[in-house]
Write a protein that binds this DNA or RNA. Structure first.
Lengths: 144, 144
DNA sequence: TTTAATTAGGACATTTTTGTCCGATTAAAT
DNA sequence: ATTTAATCGGACAAAAATGTCCTAATTAAA
């Protein structure tokens, strides 16, 4: 569904948000350990997310990553996917046809549109805050 | 959603089925041209589909690929996806967690399950015959 | 002011996916 | 029988995705 990079990105952001809500800034190492991802690769993804304003990064000793509560409530799953994977999840034909559309549909166009619209709605309505809810309480998990 | 290989595979099978219903066996070249795919790469995918009994191949001059009407009605989109891409579309967590399940769900587990189940149902109910319906009549397209 | 901890970012390495080439095999047509 | 048109399958090549390493820049703490 998503690239590995995007999966790590989502997990990382949820972890950062979860810790930020507890008032804690987290380091790259801590993040990678918490979400079970390759450190240096995760760094690249976080750079990308930071440049796009989805997370805040602080350099230097005792630096790390954090998010304001406002952003935690504003930022949607779709924003992360968009930054890391672009729009290929939403756009693009299920059969890989470049010019598949309602006027020239592929054989499964209409059926796929339904599923994709549903996925799109899910990504656009789910905030980072929503995703952190289960994490602290042990209802949902970010590794293993 | 699917790999390129799988996309080519689906388009190829729909084209083969469409032509088979008109009593015509088709060559690799004709297929690749009709669905706008790389010839040699398409050959690999068709070998795989042929080995798995999803299409019939005939060697030698005037050989090519074909499907019986029975198989055209039996074979589902899910069968092609399964052979080419395996089960990664159905199984596997949206966030890439190895052990995400109903007991240890990731933060978006339940929402994703819904979308994926819908996709699964679509793939399992759509037969190749269903997909060929629009192709001859110009309602749906396999290239461009 | 030096040291230690940290992110930023470029270059490189590995793996996977996608794609090509060619010789072997098969079978129809000449 | 020979030629020709086809698939089969192995080896190779290129591109994209994933992952690593190292140096520079930054900042808090000693």
């Amino acid at each position: 569904m998503f690239s590995k990079a995007c999966e790590y990105g989502i997990r990382a952001v949820v972890y950062i948000a979860h810790k930020s809500l507890e008032g804690q800034r987290v380091s790259l190492k801590e993040i990678a350990d918490a979400i079970d991802s390759p450190v240096a690769f995760t760094a690249k993804i976080l750079q990308q997310l930071s440049r796009n304003g989805l997370v805040d990064s602080v350099k230097g000793a005792s630096g790390g990553f954090e998010m304001s509560e406002g952003r935690i409530r504003e930022v949607r799953l779709a924003d992360i996917v968009s930054v890391v994977d672009g729009n290929r999840v939403y756009e693009g034909c299920g059969l890989g046809l470049k010019k598949c559309n309602e006027h020239k549909p592929c054989p499964v166009h209409w059926e796929f549109v339904e599923v994709r619209d549903r996925l799109k709605a899910l990504l656009e309505t789910t905030s980072i805050h929503d995703m952190t809810l289960g994490v602290g309480s042990g209802i949902s998990y970010l590794k293993r």
